[in-house]
């Protein structure tokens, strides 16, 4: 007779994908701030496309966390892939939710921005606006995620705390309606 323990299977494993678009990776750093709870997380989810795995394309997933707004054509493609592949799409952080810091350029003319940064700014010699075909073209304005695809949930914060992300993710995994009360809900 086998002496093996009856296997204790965890509840259904879920699949999680994350990406950073026009963001600073601060929200991903905040995800790492869940510290030792990362071990519990990887017991419960497989991580698909994410800066943590370096997987480049997103397969079918349960939860997609999107950091950052939409500032160029590549952001749009990645975001649409996430929306197509993820059952639940979550906008994480100020930039994904209202454009955040990158959107502070929205009242400026994009052409003039590029001119000043690459041609006429102080200290520039032999300046050139980058035009390598591999570079994604910038959009005229920076947009929040919900202006491009349907978004199921929002986690505000710049960044949201590790505790807020953990509360949200575990609420979802445990089948509860995710809820961030005071003091986890903050915009700064």
């Amino acid at each position: 007779m086998s002496n093996s323990e009856p296997s204790v299977r965890p509840a259904t494993r879920r699949c999680l994908a994350t990406t950073s678009l026009a963001g600073c990776f601060g929200c991903h750093m905040a995800l790492l701030d869940i510290d030792e709870r990362l071990f519990e997380l990887i017991e419960r989810v497989d991580i698909d496309r994410s800066p943590l795995t370096d997987i480049k394309r997103c397969g079918r997933c349960d939860i997609g966390l999107v950091e950052g707004g939409i500032c160029n054509a590549e952001n749009v493609h990645v975001l649409r892939e996430f929306r197509r592949q993820c059952k639940l799409l979550v906008a994480v952080g100020a930039c994904a939710i209202n454009g955040g810091l990158p959107a502070q350029r929205n009242h400026l003319d994009l052409g003039q921005c590029l001119q000043e940064v690459y041609l006429t700014g102080p200290g520039i010699v032999h300046g050139q606006v980058p035009d390598d075909p591999e570079l994604p073209l910038p959009l005229d304005k920076v947009h929040p995620v919900h202006e491009v695809v349907r978004v199921d949930y929002f986690i505000p914060g710049c960044p949201p705390s590790g505790d807020a992300l953990w509360k949200f993710i575990t609420d979802l995994l445990d089948g509860r309606t995710p809820r961030l009360g005071h003091p986890l809900l903050h915009f700064d």
């Binding site: 939710i97 009242h107 929040p144 202006e147 978004v151 929002f154 915009f187």
Partner: peptide, 14 residues
């Protein structure tokens, strides 16, 4: 915060 406004829902005017 009090009314748990998580996102802007509407398009931004900027």
């Amino acid at each position: 915060y009090e009314l748990e406004m998580l996102g802007p829902h509407f398009p931004q005017f900027y």
